[in-house]
Amino acid sequence: MSTYVYGITDSSHTGLPEGMEGVGDPPAAVRVIKEGDLAAVVSDAPEGLKPKRKHLLAHQNVLAEAGAAGAVLPMRFGSVAPDDDTVTGVLAERSDHYKERLRALEGKVEYNVKATHDEEAVLHRVMSENPELRALAEANRQSGGGSYDDKLRLGEMVVGAVKAQEGEDAAELRRILEPAAADVSVGPESTGWLTNVSFLVDRKTAEDFLAAVEEARRSHPHVELRVNGPLPPYSFVEPDPSQHAESGVGQETALE
């Protein structure tokens, strides 16, 4: 039976609730295997495990519970070892590395922040700030929408202005939130959001971070912020967060 691995903790970790259920259908029982100072939170790996929502949630739930009781290094979903011995072997082999990571993440949680523009609101904003754009839009409107070329020209300018606004807002959001965080990890870019950034936050100062989020919401009403946390520190399991940055958007500057 192969072994599904949820995360790595300190062996002194206070453990999980009785009867914690993991991935699989029916859910596999979660257990802890120890090796020296380290422990792995595991379960039997179900046959033919697929990345279905319920399994993803089970993975997340186990890690949330484990994380509530002490530092945990969350595995990416779907990590399966051939057997328990392989898991303990890995723990032994990279013991120093994992212990260092656990120390660095002790008492800290991840907050993921994704921002999108409210399209109409941001159009209002760029139009109000850009007289040239306004004049062009007005000229088009007066000529019944403008010619194809006129529309293209206007659209190109608007897209440029909106993109510039995206970059500006992403930078400003980071500037507002970063001081309340211990570390920052920039997530992949996507058409789905203008920024996708994870912040490592000390549990004790989480309120300060959330207050900064509220400040950002107030000062940027044309931006919709989706904040998720506290989460296990998925984005901070490796020492150098800059490897998570996939573009030139974020200049990685850890605060420490």
Partner: peptide, 25 residues
């Protein structure tokens, strides 16, 4: 609420260990 935003992290971040296999996504 925000489930999708969290699942993105579960699937795309977190520790990867070479000695382990990953379930096909």
């Amino acid at each position: 609420s925000g489930l999708y935003d969290v699942l993105e992290l579960v699937l795309d971040r977190g520790l990867v260990i070479d000695a382990f296999i990953r379930v096909s996504l």
